[in-house]
């Protein structure tokens, strides 16, 4: 099944549930009408939250840059000794 169909299925299921709620009027209708807005807002909040958390916990590796510089220096010495042209970039 194409992935977009899976997502649409979920959306249809949610809307069916919502329409059911509207018909049954267990909760007052005025509240039920607002549910899709809550849904979209909470989806947006989830997205922003995930981006925020991801940003705060973004793994960085400054020490790797230093290690790489060492490796580059080592490689240059070896390559120069063995006749590989690493002079200018």
């Amino acid at each position: 099944m194409k992935h977009v169909l899976k997502i649409l299925t979920i959306l249809v299921a949610i809307s069916a549930f919502w329409i059911g709620l509207l018909q049954a009027s267990i909760v007052p209708r005025s509240h039920t009408w607002l549910l899709p807005i809550y849904f979209i807002v909470s989806l947006g909040c989830y997205g922003l939250l995930m981006v925020g958390v991801g940003l705060m916990r973004f793994p960085t590796c400054p020490q790797e840059a230093l290690l790489l510089q060492k490796d580059i220096a080592e490689a240059k010495v070896f390559l120069k000794q063995n006749g590989v042209d690493v002079g200018s970039d």
Binding site: M50, L55, F58, P59, T60
Partner: peptide
């Protein structure tokens, strides 16, 4: 794992 040398904008784009 991790990344080095990215500014805030790049990180934000990547996370988004």
């Amino acid at each position: 794992g991790g990344v080095h040398g990215w500014n805030l904008m790049r990180k934000l784009t990547s996370r988004g």
